[in-house]
Design a protein around this nucleic acid. Structure first.
Lengths: 107, 107
DNA sequence: CCGCATCCGAAACGATACTG
DNA sequence: CAGTATCGTTTCGGATGCGG
């Protein structure tokens, strides 16, 4: 299997950042660390369950850092790792394309 | 529902171009028009069914043009519309990120 | 050559209720 | 506040067989 053709990189990238929520969450984390319920407000349509799952996935991929502050009540902050910041360009381009999408005449 | 925040653009974009195959197909179509079985060879792991479905979806979104040449046997060519070419930047950035992904030490 | 129809399992996603 | 657990629905994706 010739895995090294450039197209496969696209596939790998999409497998990691594909899905409805991932890049959306990253787009907010790019502005700075966020708490759990803060992200829920930022992304009103996401369910609690999906938010947990997606954050865990991003954490496991090394793109997001989860920090627990042992206060009462507990405080948890999510932030992008240096690796996670590599997604900034993708978010930018995606945002640009999305805006054009919503503006174009033909749906 | 405040739909106009920039993040939502990202979501809309991902809903259109998300999925395992879409951007991969676009990445090949960027090189020029392709026939059905040509794409099957380019993307060895895609099933006939998915190739049909994804091409139809891209066509319906106005990103891909399907041209039927009434020869015998029939010849069908898929090419990007001008709108479809707007995906070029996304593919580039995705490709770059994917290559880095495969190269980084920590999996 | 270029599909479509059908069936099926797997994965993504969502709603709701409950917990330290 | 920040989650788990459970369940149901929807979408994704593969296998196979048929048709113009």
């Amino acid at each position: 299997m010739k895995e090294n053709i450039s197209g496969c990189s696209v596939e790998e990238a999409m497998r990691l950042i594909g899905g409805r929520w991932r890049m959306l969450l990253v787009s907010f984390l790019l502005e700075g660390p966020r708490r759990f319920n803060q992200l829920r407000r930022d992304v009103p349509n996401i369910s609690q369950r999906m938010l947990t799952l997606e954050l865990r996935a991003l954490e496991e991929a090394g793109l997001v850092l989860r920090t627990v502050y042992p206060e009462v009540p507990v405080r948890v902050e999510y932030s992008l790792t240096p690796d996670g910041r590599r997604l900034e360009k993708i978010v930018e381009v995606l945002k640009e394309f999305g805006l054009w999408l919503k503006a174009r005449p033909a749906a």
